[in-house]
Design a protein around this nucleic acid. Structure first.
Lengths: 130, 130
DNA sequence: TTGTAAATGCAACACTGTTGCAATAAGTTT
DNA sequence: AAACTTATTGCAACAGTGTTGCATTTACAA
C-alpha cells in the first residue's frame, strides 16, 4: 500500500489523447510508443478505453483503426454521429463538430453510422501553392 | 488470331459482380476463387476495374475493402456518394440508393465521402425472432 | 513467325491486429 | 506483513489483408 505508481501505459495513452482533439491511429501509437510500450498493450488499452467510453473508434480511408476522445452528447443517450475528416495527402484525421442525420431505411435497423470525408486539409493546401 | 479465349480471371470477376448489386470484399473473393485464381490476380483485377470505373470501392466496418458495381450518375460528372449498409451480424454489405449531401467545411476541400450505416439486415432480424 | 505488351502466377514480404501464456504489479484478506 | 487473488503488461507466435518483384504465360500486332 502506498507504493508509488510508475508511469503506467494506461496513463501515457490517456495523456496522449488529452493533448489533441484529432484522431490517432492504433498503428501510429504503436510506432510512437515503441519500444517503451508493447504493441499488444497498446491495442488492449485502446480497446479498454473505447469500452469504457473514454475513446471512440472508426476506420480511416485505408482501413486503419483510429481513435479519438469521446465527446459527450449534450442530451443524454443519443448517438454521437459526428463525421471525420481525413486528408488525402498527409492522412491526418480530425473529428468534425457537425451533426449528421442518419437516413432511415425501411426493413433495416440502423445502429450506427460512420461518415468519413476525404479531402485536403489546410496545411496540405498551402503546401501545394508553394 | 481467332483463338478461343479460355475463361479468364477478368471475365470471372466481371460476371461475379454482374450477378449481384451487393458489395463483395476482396478477401471474400480471394477465398471463393481459390485455388482457381491467384490472390494477387484478384487484387490486381479489382484495382483495374475500379480505375476503369466499372467498380467502386469502400471500407467496411472491420476495415476490409469492399467492391461493388459502379452506378453511373444520371447527370454526368457529379460524385456518386451513395451510402453503404453493413449488417453487424452477418457482415453483408449493400449499396443504398440514397443521395447523401456532403457537408461543406470552410478551409477544407472535400473530394469524396464515405457513409457506412451499420445495423441489422432483414435476414438477421428474422433469425432473431425464431 | 517474330516481337512486344499485357495479364497471370508464385513466393516472399510488410503491415495491422489478435491470442495464449508467462511474468509482474496492484489490490484484498487474513 | 504474508498470502492470495485479480488485473496489467510483455513476449512470441500467429492470422489475415494486401503489396511487390520476378518469372512465365497469354494476347495482340508487325
Amino acid at each position: 500500500m502506498g507504493k508509488i505508481n510508475k508511469t503506467k501505459p494506461l496513463m501515457i495513452l490517456l495523456e496522449t489523447f488529452e493533448q489533441t482533439a484529432d484522431g490517432i491511429s492504433s498503428a501510429e501509437l504503436v510506432k510512437q510508443l515503441q519500444p517503451k510500450m508493447n504493441k499488444t498493450t497498446v491495442y488492449r488499452i485502446l480497446q479498454r478505453l473505447e469500452k469504457s467510453g473514454t475513446l471512440h473508434s472508426f476506420r480511416g480511408k485505408d482501413g486503419l483503426k483510429w481513435y479519438a476522445k469521446h465527446k459527450k452528447c449534450s442530451s443524454g443517450q443519443e448517438l454521437d454521429t459526428h463525421p471525420h475528416f481525413q486528408c488525402r495527402d498527409c492522412g491526418k484525421v480530425e473529428c468534425l463538430a457537425l451533426d449528421v442525420s442518419i437516413p432511415s431505411i425501411s426493413n433495416y435497423k440502423i445502429d450506427s453510422a460512420e461518415l468519413l470525408l476525404i479531402g485536403q486539409c489546410k496545411d496540405c493546401m498551402s503546401k501545394d501553392s508553394l
